[in-house]
Every structure is written in C-alpha cells, then in structure tokens.
C-alpha cells in the first residue's frame, strides 16, 4: 500500500533520516517506535510530502509519488492525524467533519458523518463548539473522526494518545482497534509501546534516523533486550 525506500531527510544542514526503508501492506497495522527525536514524525512527514526528503522514493499502491504535493499523495487513500491534532480555531466540530468528507479511492463511503458520531458519541454533544474549545481527548477524537471522514485505506496516527487521561486513552485505543478490525491499514506512533504491540501486526524501531528493528509485533514484544536498549522500557 505504502512503500518508501532510501529516505534521507534534512532540516537545513542537519540530517535527520539516514536512508530509511519502510512499508505498510494493505490492511496491516504497523507500530512505529523510537525514543524522542529519533525521526518518527519526520519519517511520516517525508512520506506524505510535508517535508521534502533529499533522497529516496515513495510509492503508494505502486505509483511513484516522490516529490508530489501532500494533498495529491493523501488523496490516494491516505489519512493523517498529526501530532498536536491540527484543529482549526475557526471551525465548529460539525464543520471539521463535513469539510473532510470524501468517498474512498474505491468509491465507498463506509465512514459518514453519522457513523463518526456513533463512534465518538462525545462529539455529537459538542457539534456547534469550536474545535479548539474541546478538551484534549475530544480534540483527539475529532482529529481521528475527521481523518475517517476521508474513507482512507491507510490511517496514519502520530501520538494519538499523548497527554490524555487514562480513561480517555483507553477509549481511543478501543476505537483504534475497532478501526483496524474494519480492514483499514494503519501506521501508529505512540509512547504506549506495550498496548500498541498487543494488537499491531508489525513493529519498526527507529534510532537516530535509522531502522534498527523491523519484525512481527509479537516477537518484538517478547524481545525485552531490544525494547530496553532502543526504547527504554
């Protein structure tokens, strides 16, 4: 579904990614892990064209999209929930959802306004509030709900549970699992590695902009030494 090879990314003169190979198969859930500042978010942004990699190739469903506009890469069936949630301060909850609505690349509209509200009932109570007036957890739900409105084949979540109260975090995990069960592929970056590895199919660990580990999630979860060396748990 998504396939990146040899990604080198710089911020100015500082090299952040040193030739990363990364892929996600149709329907697969990949846990992207690593300590702070190792380049997880940069890898996501490089693949989506938000940051331009200096070298490397990105393919979506076999089509070379290297150097394409972010919006046109996204429209190939990807959806992105960024760190910091990306709320619009001047749009209501309802508008956040409606503005993003779009059928999937296969023409299907599995995710509608009503279905998103069923999935996140708390949003239904706050439809006329501005996005930035919601609590952190509600903003996160809105950001995920908005991403689902585009009927993606691949959902990319960067730190979706960061800074949330445990109960809300549990809700979000529950939803993410439910989304996985519908067959949508996902890339999930999250600090809660144990929860993540419980249901992810595959795990990838980044250290200083390089992939040091790429394998089945179950195997990584057992491998305490890898986890403690590279992630610190």
């Amino acid at each position: 579904m998504l396939n990146a090879t040899g990604i080198h990314t710089y911020y100015g003169n500082a090299q952040v990614l040193h030739g990363i190979d990364f892929h996600v198969a149709e329907g697969e859930t990949v846990a992207l892990m690593g300590r702070n500042g190792m380049g997880k978010s940069t890898l996501l942004k490089s693949m989506l064209g938000i940051v331009a990699p200096r070298r490397g190739k990105v393919r979506v469903n076999g089509v070379d999209v290297t150097g394409h506009e972010t919006s046109s890469i996204i429209r190939r069936g990807l959806s992105y929930v960024p760190e910091g949630r990306g709320m619009f301060h001047n749009l209501s909850v309802r508008e956040h959802l409606l503005m993003a609505a779009r059928p999937g690349i296969d023409g299907r509209r599995d995710w509608t306004f009503d279905r998103v509200l069923e999935t996140f009932p708390r949003l239904a109570e706050r439809l006329d509030n501005l996005g930035t007036h919601l609590s952190g957890g509600e903003q996160q739900m809105l950001s995920i709900g908005r991403a689902l409105m585009t009927n993606p084949r691949l959902l990319i979540l960067d730190e979706a549970t960061e800074g949330l109260a445990p109960l809300i975090r549990r809700d979000i995990w529950h939803t993410i699992r439910a989304i996985k069960a519908t067959g949508i592929a996902s890339i999930i970056v999250d600090k809660n590695v144990n929860v993540l590895l419980d249901f992810a199919d595959r795990g990838v660990i980044l250290v200083k902009g390089e992939v040091v580990c790429d394998g089945p999630a179950k195997a990584i979860k057992q491998d305490k030494s890898t986890l403690s060396t590279h992630i610190g748990i």
Partner: peptide
C-alpha cells in the same frame, strides 16, 4: 464546504493540505 476550506486554510493551511484538499 468551499467556505469551510477557505476558513480552515486561514487557520492552518498545512492541515488542509494534509486532508487531501488542493490548497494551491
């Protein structure tokens, strides 16, 4: 929806592009 995109663009144009909307 066009109006929503315009307003959203004023608030956070990178996020609008990240939703697959052709900001250009």
């Amino acid at each position: 929806r066009f109006g929503m995109w315009v307003r959203a663009g004023a608030s956070n144009r990178d996020m609008v592009a990240a939703l697959g909307i052709d900001v250009k």
